[in-house]
C-alpha cells in the first residue's frame, strides 16, 4: 500500500470516523448538560428569531467596537473567505466531496484558487504572528490555539505545494496533503476548530437570552 493509497483509503476513513465521533460526542455532551428553563416573564417572546438574528448579527461587531478590533475583523473575514473559496471551489476538492456526498457544484479556475490559497496562508501566518506577539493573545493562548492554527496551516501549505508540484513528487505531495487534512480532521473535535460547529448554538443561545430581555444580541 502506497502512502497515497493509505491517505485516501484507511487513513481517510479513520480520520472521518474520529471526526464524526468526536463532534457528536462533544456537541451532545455539552448541550445535554441542559439549562434550567428561564421562567422570568419575557419582554419579547419571539426568542427563536432573536436567536437566529444573533447567529447572523454576531458576524459583524457593533459600531462602538469595530474600530478597536478592525485588524481581527478584516483578517477574520479574509481568512475564512479565502479558506472557504479554496476548500470548496477547487475542482479536485469538489470531486473529493462528490465521492461521498454524491453531488457536486461548479468550480473556479485554478488560478483563482491559487490566489485565495496564498491569501489564506498569508493571513493565517499573520494571525499566528499576532497570537504570538499581541500582549493579550500571547498571554491567554494555550497549546490548543497553536495546534489548531498549525493543523490548518499545514494542509494549506501542502495543498499549495501539491498544486504547484513543488518540492517532491506529486503523489507524495498529494498523500502528505491528504494526511495533513486527516490530522486536522482528527484534531478538529478536540480543539477549538470546533467553533465551526459551536458558533451556531453559542450565538443562538446568546440571541435568545438577550432577545427575551428585549436586547439585540
Amino acid at each position: 500500500m502506497t502512502l497515497l493509497e493509505f491517505a485516501s483509503g484507511p487513513g481517510l476513513q479513520w480520520a472521518l470516523w474520529i471526526f464524526v465521533f468526536g463532534i457528536t460526542w462533544r456537541v451532545v455532551g455539552a448541550v445535554f448538560l441542559l439549562s434550567r428553563k428561564d421562567i422570568s416573564k419575557p419582554r419579547h417572546t419571539n426568542t427563536i428569531s432573536a436567536g437566529l438574528g444573533a447567529v447572523w448579527s454576531r458576524s459583524s461587531p457593533a459600531r462602538a467596537f469595530e474600530k478597536k478590533i478592525r485588524f481581527q475583523h478584516v483578517t477574520g473575514y479574509a481568512w475564512h473567505f479565502a479558506l472557504f473559496i479554496s476548500v470548496l471551489f477547487f475542482a479536485p476538492h469538489i470531486l473529493f466531496f462528490e465521492s461521498v456526498l454524491g453531488f457536486s457544484w461548479p468550480h473556479l479556475p485554478n488560478t483563482i484558487i491559487l490566489i485565495t490559497a496564498i491569501v489564506a496562508t498569508a493571513v493565517l501566518i499573520a494571525l499566528l504572528i499576532r497570537r504570538a506577539t499581541h500582549p493579550v493573545q500571547r498571554f491567554i493562548s494555550n497549546a490548543d490555539d497553536y495546534i489548531s492554527i498549525f493543523v490548518v496551516l499545514v494542509p494549506l501549505v501542502t495543498g499549495i505545494l501539491a498544486f504547484t508540484h513543488f518540492g517532491a513528487r506529486y503523489e507524495t505531495l498529494l498523500a502528505v496533503h491528504l494526511l495533513s487534512v486527516e490530522v486536522m480532521l482528527i484534531w478538529f473535535p478536540f480543539g477549538k476548530l470546533m467553533h465551526m460547529i459551536m458558533t451556531i448554538p453559542a450565538r443562538f443561545q446568546a440571541g435568545t437570552a438577550f432577545g427575551r430581555r428585549g436586547v439585540k444580541a
Binding site: 462533544r26 455532551g29 455539552a30 448541550v31 445535554f32 448538560l33 441542559l34 439549562s35 434550567r36 481581527q72 499581541h134 493579550v136 493573545q137 491567554i140 493562548s141 494555550n142 490548543d144 490555539d145 477549538k192 470546533m194 467553533h195 459551536m198 458558533t199 448554538p201 453559542a202 443561545q205 437570552a209
Partner: peptide, 15 residues
C-alpha cells in the same frame, strides 16, 4: 449548565 458548557466549548481565545 448547558449554556455555560456551550460557551466554554466555543471560546476561540481571540481576545
Amino acid at each position: 449548565n448547558g449554556h455555560r458548557a456551550v460557551d466554554m466549548d466555543t471560546c476561540l481565545q481571540c481576545g
